[in-house]
């Protein structure tokens, strides 16, 4: 049973059909990179997978015991967060929110989960620091730790390396690959097509519909891949 299966999914963005008739399956353990030009429906598709938008047509279903609110999500940073006074621990702990239901306060077990994920991403030294004093790469690690608190199974990353320098970008990619090897399924929206091909196991190329979905090795040889990677055959 696939972790996520989309069957003929159509999603709207501001009265325009941004995703049309998309069908694909994501298996447990996959590392899928969603690529495509601006306005190709990548972000809208991500919102659909997260349940922030409900499909106009088709269905998105979850298997393998995955629940929608048990997805670890790494959104793009907002202006609000840039100068937000919160400690690293507070931010990471807020990832456990989906485990609590209506209970108002965190349990010791949830505090342990937060502590474990802080160690897992080696940001233990920053635990008491304020989020606004961290570098861009450190902030992404904190948000990744928070996402891991929400999930054991699936991470959804929205342009995680935007605004990071090349060294930090490489570190973050390595970290994501390692998490994937540890058994976390990764779905990532990215502009960085070259890195995506090198890192991901599968490529999902969106252009309102699904233009390509398959192994990353096969992507450069496909027609859409050749065009997008700027190879020999320009359309």
């Amino acid at each position: 049973m696939a972790l996520i299966s989309c069957k003929g999914v159509s999603l709207r963005y501001e009265n325009r059909l941004a995703v049309e008739d998309a069908s694909f399956e994501i298996e447990a353990g996959d590392y899928v990179c969603i690529v495509g030009e601006n306005g190709s429906g990548k972000s809208t598709l991500l919102k659909g997978l997260l349940g922030l938008k409900s499909p106009d047509a088709g269905s998105i279903s979850y298997g393998d015991g995955l629940e929608q609110r048990m997805i670890g999500y790494l959104p793009q940073q907002t202006v609000v967060q840039k100068d937000f006074p919160a400690s690293v621990y507070e931010v990471v702990l807020s990832g456990c929110l989906n485990r609590r239901g209506m209970r108002p306060f965190y349990s010791p077990a949830e505090r342990q989960i937060a502590g474990r994920n802080i160690e897992r991403l080696s940001i233990g030294g920053l635990r008491k620091k304020s989020y606004r004093d961290l570098s861009g790469g450190q902030q992404q690690r904190v948000l990744l730790a928070r996402a891991l608190c929400a999930t054991e199974k699936l991470l959804l990353l929205d342009e995680p390396v935007t605004g990071l320098d090349p060294v930090v970008t490489a570190e973050l990619y390595a970290l994501i690959r390692q998490l994937n090897r540890e058994g976390v399924t990764v779905v990532m929206v990215s502009h960085d097509i070259v890195c995506a091909v090198h890192n991901a196991g599968k490529i999902l190329h969106m252009g309102t519909g699904v233009l390509f979905y398959g192994r990353a090795e096969d992507y450069p040889d496909s027609e859409v891949g050749r065009r997008f990677l700027g190879g020999d055959h320009h359309a």
Binding site: L52, I71, S94
Partner: peptide, 12 residues
């Protein structure tokens, strides 16, 4: 307050 998108995605 910190992150509305994340909170929403986790079912808040």
């Amino acid at each position: 307050t910190f992150d509305e998108a994340f909170a929403q995605a986790t079912g808040v």
